[in-house]
Amino acid sequence: MIIFRYLLKEVAKTQLAVFFVLMTIFISQKFVRVLGDASEGSIPGQMVMIFIALKVPDLGGMMLPLSFFLGILLAYGRIYADNEMTVLHACGVSEWYVVRVTLILALVTAIFTGIFTLYLAPMASEYQYQVKDKLAADSGLSSLVAGRFQKTGNEKAVVFIHDKHRDDNSFDKVFLAQLPDENHLDDSIINSSLVYAKKGQVFEEESGSQRLVLSQGIRYHKDANSGEFQAVTFDKYYIQIQDQEIEQKHRKLSALPTHQLFNPPDADSAPEYSATIQWRIAFPLACIILTLIAVPLSVVNPRQGKFAKMLPLMLFLGYFLLLTAMKSGVERQALPSNIGLWPIHISALFMGIILLMRERSSGRKIKAKFPGFRRNTASDNKVRDIKE
């Protein structure tokens, strides 16, 4: 039990450290990207942390298998480098026992990964679409930022506001230029009406349309007959800044709940639905399969140091690149959906079994049970005796 807890503790501790480092790196990249969108006015500044939080489930589902794979390599690599594993083997701890202990932690990691990929990530993606739809529907009100020229939601006017009051969504010192109609796009901007008002406020109607109400202002426009400019003062001035409610955008399959993917709407979309299901299952399944690969590859020579076996990281990258390629092939119907990603999983599992059986005492015991192996071994011994 002491050895059991020791092995689990070392791998889990290293896995968590790698996981938090990877999450910090990738979340920082997402933060910079979202912050850039906020600075351009695409999303409100107060929504930055919400968009970052919605990226966490998707990143967590991808980072857990990688952190577990690296955790095994680093933890067991240190144990081998410090000759601790040699002492454990001398005390009767076999390689298969180490694998069984690691598979327990792999099962726990696979459960958490499945929660991320099968439940939390689709839910976060759907909520992100809802937030974007709400921002698009409320673009006339939320996109108006003080000190910046911006188009209205229907792109029929350009608005500049000096100050914005968040408590009642009112504006101070509003400048507005109504753009020419679509049929008169060749007209100069000078032919458009220019409006300046001391106060302004946005009102939303039940139909989803929005109007900007300006007060205490003056409007400059060019008379179509005389060609002269006229200035008209007004107490109230209305302009439509959004014509109708924005329709709900098409959702990607990443936003659909997992149980809905089992019922595609038609035969044409069935391959894409099947590829999405297998992609979500691939991450939890990879935690189990990669354990069989990482444990034998974590063996290092004490003279080489614990980082000598970091090259197996290329196997992990190749594994997921192949999964990505197979998923794309299924979606394009270049591969049968019933085959899907399973050949990659089976190949990786077969590689893990070979690595475990190679030069392992427990593996040689399993091989010795086969008659063909015993005959080959006896013939090899005779050849060795003749050569000697």
Rank of each mutant, 00 (worst) to 15 (best):
M62E: 10
D168K: 11
L313Y: 05
D235K: 13
P265L: 06
N191R: 10
L323S: 06
A177C: 06
Q46P: 00
K365N: 06
L74P: 01
Q15I: 00
K367A: 14
P44H: 04
F171I: 03
K173T: 11
A224F: 10
M1I: 08
F160N: 12
L256Y: 11
A267Q: 07
S269N: 12
F160V: 08
I79C: 11
L141P: 00
A348G: 10
T86P: 00
I161N: 00
L107Q: 03
P271E: 02
F20G: 06
L64S: 05
H250Q: 14
I79G: 00
M23R: 04
L313E: 00
I366A: 13
S42I: 14
P302G: 01
I353T: 10
P44N: 06
E272I: 10
I43R: 04
L341F: 03
D138V: 03
F171V: 04
P271T: 01
F26V: 15
F373M: 08
L120A: 15
F171G: 01
L321I: 11
M123L: 14
H345W: 02
A308I: 02
G340M: 06
F370Y: 12
H89Y: 08
G227L: 08
N154C: 03
A157I: 01
M85T: 10
M351W: 03
Q15H: 09
V213C: 02
K199E: 13
R166W: 01
L54M: 14
V99R: 02
L54C: 03
Q230Y: 01
P284N: 07
F373R: 02
A90Y: 02
A81F: 01
M85R: 02
L176Y: 11
K252Q: 14
I189S: 09
P296V: 07
R148V: 15
S209A: 15
I115D: 09
E84K: 00
Q242M: 12
G372M: 06
A81D: 12
T14H: 07
K134M: 10
I353A: 13
I52M: 15
L179I: 07
